[in-house]
Simulated assay, not measured.
Amino acid sequence: MDIRKGYLSDIAGITDIFNFYIEHTNARFEVAQFSIENRQEWFSQFSSNPKHQLFVATENGELLGFACSQPYRDISAFEDTVEVTVYLASTAKSKGIGSKLYARLFSSIVDHGVHRALSGVALPNDASIALHKRFGFREIGIFNEYAKKKGEYISSVWLEKVLNVESN
């Protein structure tokens, strides 16, 4: 298995993974599937700021998952804060791939002035919460039934990780 920076050529595989979660889970709140064009626009954020990174896991030409750091909010007050996420292909779960992706992501962004990493996890998702806690995240709180998909309310736990303890 190879963990490397994501390339534009990975967009089809990334789109497939996103769409699986949109269609089959509440991890994504969208109801309409993403298009490759939509994800190409999303991909452009990873080329302009070293705090925003995308890594993919591949094996034998197959994209197994990805992890990324993205802007939390698009205003200067949050320039040292990122939102991180990891998604795996349904066939790649429980193999340590998420941990390898996060390890690579955090080692990449820690030297670029990222102060806090945040992540929201739709509930229930014990595996994702456990993964985040293994990487030093702590629970901040729960947004209870704040989203609705397919007629059901969804709650999310929000977690944070300190990356840069020095003040900027």
Rank of each mutant, 00 (worst) to 15 (best):
residue 1 M to G: 13
residue 2 D to S: 13
residue 5 K to I: 10
residue 5 K to A: 13
residue 6 G to V: 10
residue 7 Y to N: 14
residue 8 L to Q: 14
residue 9 S to Y: 06
residue 11 I to N: 07
residue 13 G to H: 04
residue 16 D to R: 15
residue 16 D to T: 14
residue 16 D to L: 06
residue 17 I to E: 13
residue 21 Y to C: 02
residue 23 E to A: 14
residue 23 E to K: 15
residue 25 T to R: 06
residue 25 T to M: 03
residue 29 F to W: 10
residue 29 F to M: 13
residue 29 F to K: 05
residue 33 Q to H: 05
residue 33 Q to M: 04
residue 33 Q to A: 12
residue 34 F to Y: 13
residue 34 F to K: 15
residue 34 F to R: 15
residue 34 F to S: 14
residue 36 I to D: 11
residue 37 E to Y: 08
residue 42 W to F: 06
residue 42 W to I: 04
residue 48 S to M: 08
residue 48 S to F: 11
residue 51 K to F: 00
residue 52 H to R: 12
residue 53 Q to V: 13
residue 54 L to P: 03
residue 54 L to N: 03
residue 54 L to S: 03
residue 55 F to R: 03
residue 55 F to Y: 13
residue 56 V to G: 01
residue 56 V to K: 02
residue 57 A to Y: 01
residue 61 G to Q: 01
residue 61 G to A: 02
residue 61 G to Y: 02
residue 65 G to L: 08
residue 66 F to K: 09
residue 68 C to G: 14
residue 68 C to N: 15
residue 69 S to D: 09
residue 71 P to D: 08
residue 71 P to A: 09
residue 72 Y to H: 14
residue 74 D to W: 06
residue 78 F to Y: 15
residue 81 T to A: 10
residue 82 V to W: 09
residue 82 V to E: 07
residue 85 T to M: 06
residue 85 T to W: 00
residue 90 S to W: 00
residue 91 T to H: 12
residue 94 S to C: 09
residue 99 S to G: 15
residue 100 K to F: 02
residue 100 K to C: 11
residue 101 L to A: 11
residue 102 Y to Q: 05
residue 102 Y to G: 00
residue 102 Y to H: 03
residue 106 F to N: 05
residue 109 I to T: 10
residue 110 V to N: 11
residue 110 V to Q: 15
residue 110 V to A: 14
residue 110 V to G: 01
residue 111 D to E: 14
residue 111 D to R: 14
residue 114 V to Q: 10
residue 117 A to N: 03
residue 118 L to H: 08
residue 118 L to M: 15
residue 123 L to D: 04
residue 125 N to F: 04
residue 128 S to I: 07
residue 128 S to T: 04
residue 131 L to K: 12
residue 131 L to M: 11
residue 133 K to D: 09
residue 133 K to C: 11
residue 134 R to I: 01
residue 136 G to Y: 05
residue 139 E to R: 04
residue 141 G to V: 05
residue 142 I to F: 00
residue 145 E to S: 12
residue 145 E to V: 01
residue 147 A to I: 03
residue 147 A to H: 02
residue 149 K to E: 01
residue 149 K to R: 03
residue 150 K to W: 06
residue 150 K to H: 12
residue 153 Y to M: 09
residue 154 I to M: 02
residue 156 S to N: 11
residue 157 V to N: 11
residue 158 W to I: 07
residue 160 E to M: 10
residue 162 V to M: 14
residue 167 S to C: 01
